[in-house]
């Protein structure tokens, strides 16, 4: 039996990675404008208006789609910038916008009835009731699932909703419910919800004491590495802390998500699309990951065994986890 091919939704942090992802076989790329309207507002990333228009044309010529993330929470008194992002995305022919904020969803449904709306993971829609609410009220067509579910739970949700679901399959892993985390804001004053950044590089200091290397975020030491060891980036929720007499990665090990082995189970669970995280990653990374996952979803659709060799190479030397997709993670 041949299944529908799972749609591969791939990151594009720059115009060059958009072209790379499309050339490597992405069915869809997602990206954002270079400002606070999207949740990967990093220096040097994202698209000017002209770049996005050109990127959409490039993708469409190749038969690929472009989703535009406008998935931060608009600033009080400054909503116009977010409204403009929606209008511009629609004007350029974006195939969907990815939104999280209630007010912005209401605005989009009201003023841009022809624009396809997807619910961002930042909205943390964590059950069928809330997904149905967004679908009924705003006409949302797809929801990016928060990373809190087991595969069995995703299957159960899909039985209760009529909109499409998109699940993260590879890349960085939030351990907290997304869009509801103020950890970065508490330590640095810069937040995913308001500024589109988490544990920002502007607040990172690597301090070499001669014996150890401390990775600090703002005034807080997040990691201590021995001389000669690689110092990990001090992402707050992957830090090493002392609590209750133990010294450990209290929230999550510095691991990234790799749910490649679960691809057939995602398909069985009724998931429509697989999302790869990593708009901040290099072209070479994007190219390798997209190629591997495109092979995998094609193999599944054609009833061939999934080629795993390429996939396991991607995470070689790094720790990976299947996250909440496996229930014991909790």
């Amino acid at each position: 039996m041949t299944l529908d091919t799972l749609e591969l939704v791939c990151p594009a942090g720059t115009p060059a990675s958009l072209r790379t992802a499309v050339d490597a076989g992405a069915h869809t790329v997602y990206c954002g404008f270079s400002d606070e309207t999207n949740a990967r507002n990093f220096p040097g990333l994202n698209f000017s208006r002209d770049e996005l228009a050109a990127g959409i044309a490039y993708a469409h010529d190749a038969g690929a789609r472009v989703f535009v993330a406008v998935n931060t929470f608009p600033k009080a008194g400054g909503e116009a910038a977010w409204h403009r992002a929606l209008a511009d995305a629609e004007g350029m022919g974006a195939d969907a916008v990815i939104l999280a904020d209630l007010g912005l969803l209401a605005h989009a449904a009201d003023r841009h009835p022809g624009l396809r709306l997807h619910l961002s993971v930042q909205a943390a829609a964590a059950n069928a009731d809330t997904i149905n609410f967004y679908a009924d009220r705003f006409g949302v067509k797809r929801v990016v699932l928060p990373r809190v579910f087991s595969v069995e739970e995703i299957a159960a949700i899909n039985r209760e909703i009529s909109v499409e679901t998109e699940a993260f399959v590879f890349g960085g892993l939030c351990v907290m419910a997304e869009g509801r985390c103020l950890l970065s804001s508490y330590a640095t004053g810069r937040s995913p919800n308001m500024n589109g950044v988490c544990s920002p590089a502007s607040h990172v200091v690597y301090q070499d004491t001669g014996e150890v290397l401390r990775s600090r975020l703002g005034p807080y030491t997040i990691h201590v590495s021995r001389k000669g060891q690689a110092a990990p980036y001090p992402t707050l929720c992957k830090g090493c802390f002392a609590a209750g007499g133990a010294t450990m990665h209290v929230f999550e090990d510095p691991a990234s998500l790799d749910a490649a082995r679960l691809i057939p189970r995602f398909a069985e669970a009724g998931v429509k699309a697989l999302k790869i995280e990593g708009r901040q990653r290099s072209k070479a990374y994007v190219s390798a990951v997209v190629r591997c996952f495109r092979d995998a979803v094609d193999a599944l659709a054609e009833g061939r065994p999934i080629p795993v060799a390429g996939l396991s190479r991607l995470t070689e030397g790094q720790t990976s986890t299947q996250g909440a997709y496996v229930k014991t993670w909790r």
């Binding site: 351990v175 907290m176 103020l182 950890l183 508490y186 450990m248 209290v250 909440a324 909790r330």
Partner: peptide, 16 residues
């Protein structure tokens, strides 16, 4: 104390 995050994972349980 300010609530900063909520998760599907229980950290009290993880620490234990």
């Amino acid at each position: 104390r300010v609530p900063l995050a909520i998760s599907a994972r229980c950290y009290h349980a993880r620490l234990a």
